[in-house]
Design a protein around this nucleic acid. Structure first.
Lengths: 157, 157
DNA sequence: GGCCACGTACTCGGATAGTTGCTGTCCGAGTGTTTCAGG
DNA sequence: CCTGAAACACTCGGACAGCAACTATCCGAGTACGTGGCC
């Protein structure tokens, strides 16, 4: 089980976009993070489809957040890039084989599926509790101020 | 993000193995669940490596659980088949690019990684709370008794 | 009749192909800016 | 000098290869049972 690596990039991009007041191009974001420019563009498209960021075309275009940083949760980004369907999908094994349970007797979900769904729910709830603003506050507290200022300046240039 | 489909098979097999008093062969388990015999053998090997089941060779061989059903958690099976490493792996993006943070200043983990680790922890904790015995109790309550008896008889033959 | 050795049939275990989905890349459609000519 | 339109340069968006991991499979190593011969 592996999450798409684009989730990490997307979260970093949201943090950066929140700090920059002006639109930032995908090329700048890619260079800042030293990742593939074309592939990051795809992740940004996913964020755009999900309505988390808004893209503006033209010479001074780029991406901006559509909402305040404290109104975007980590779960929003994860679901935008990695998809909303849970990792576990019940294939109804109990309805197969020589001792299959008829479908009409399967009114309640398989207990295995219920267990997995419950775990998936608490996982998503945990991610929903953290917002981009929380991440930014942590970044501001743990990274040297000169690097933050430098990055802000680098984005402007 | 998708979990290995073998996890579902492995859990169903543990439930069945707990009900059967004698060793059950991989071929029988595969036929009972109507899944690929060879592929399920691979999942059972993973369970064997993890020490959850014990394999006995020879004519009347097969697989048996090594512990009581209430001492095997769903997380044990998930980690045995799907692996123990978390779905999210931090690539230390902050240490890359033109505005990289030097490694010696990165004493605390990235807040993104911390958020993901926390979510992964509650997910695993949720799965750890459910045991095979819990699954069995639910199965016994929700499936018609004649099917349970039939399956037990089918396994014996 | 009891015991031992052998052969057989059955089991698991690891090494080997196939397929799906993630990773990475490219070029085309669209728009804001700039420039230049005309009034 | 001001205005308007056209050309340009830069942006995002979706369609196209490459690779890794999961899925599926096969055959070989090893063991318990059954059988036959011997004592």
């Amino acid at each position: 089980m592996k999450m798409s690596g684009g989730v990490e990039w997307g979260l970093h991009c949201c943090v950066v976009l929140s700090g920059a007041g002006a639109p930032v191009t995908a090329a700048k974001l890619a260079e800042l993070h030293d990742v593939s420019q074309s592939y990051l563009a795809k992740q940004l498209q996913l964020l755009s489809r999900a309505g988390l960021v808004r893209s503006t075309l033209g010479q001074s275009g780029g991406y901006v957040l559509t909402r305040a940083a404290n109104e975007i949760t980590v779960l929003d980004v994860v679901e935008a890039i990695d998809g909303v369907q849970p990792a576990f999908r019940c294939t109804e094994v109990r309805q197969r084989g020589p001792m299959a349970v008829p479908a009409e007797r399967c009114d309640t979900p398989c207990p295995i599926a219920r267990t997995m769904d419950s775990a998936d729910r608490v996982w998503r709830e945990s991610l929903r509790r953290v917002t981009i603003a929380d991440l930014i506050a942590d970044v501001n507290r743990t990274t040297p101020p000169e690097i933050l200022a430098g990055a802000r300046e680098w984005l402007r240039a």
